[in-house]
């Protein structure tokens, strides 16, 4: 079988320290908030080092899904370019040092959409 070319990690985007420059490095415009994106995150992280994130996009022609955490040292956390036939429905886990927002960005049909949620990160205790 043919061996497909390995995709190249977009270093410029992953070293950005804010959302605007990460978007620019990806060649993306500012996204528009969309309720067609379902971003599932815990209200309070059970473990800031392992925060489950799942993103489902209900719009047609989804090409990429990105996860950004602007308060982390590097904003872009994950980028999932989707092959044709791959469902716009992914789950992964991220690290968060403190209470902050998580932004899911979806590139679809030549446009950019986003959904944002806060996750509370707490020291815990006191039941």
């Amino acid at each position: 079988a043919d061996v497909p070319a390995k995709p190249v990690w977009p270093k410029d985007a992953f070293t950005c320290k804010d959302e605007a420059s990460a978007l620019k490095a990806l060649g993306w415009e500012a996204p528009v908030a969309s309720d067609k994106i379902t971003l599932v995150l815990p209200e309070i992280a059970e473990n800031g080092a392992v925060v489950p994130v799942s993103i489902t996009a209900a719009m047609p022609d989804v090409r990429s899904i990105a996860v950004m955490i602007p308060d982390n040292p590097f904003t872009l956390t994950a980028l999932f370019p989707l092959a044709a036939g791959t469902a716009p429905d992914i789950a992964c886990r991220v690290k968060m040092a403190k209470t902050a927002k998580v932004v899911a960005i979806v590139a679809a049909g030549g446009k950019l959409y986003s959904a944002t949620r806060d996750v509370k990160v707490t020291l815990g205790g006191c039941g």
Binding site: I44, T122, C126, G127
Partner: peptide, 23 residues
């Protein structure tokens, strides 16, 4: 730490409270 626990009581969103009292 005290701020963190206090927020568990008085966060304006009840889903972000844990229902214990202050440390």
């Amino acid at each position: 730490l005290m701020e963190d626990v206090c927020d568990n009581l008085f966060n304006p969103d009840p889903f972000r409270q844990q229902g214990g009292d202050m440390i």
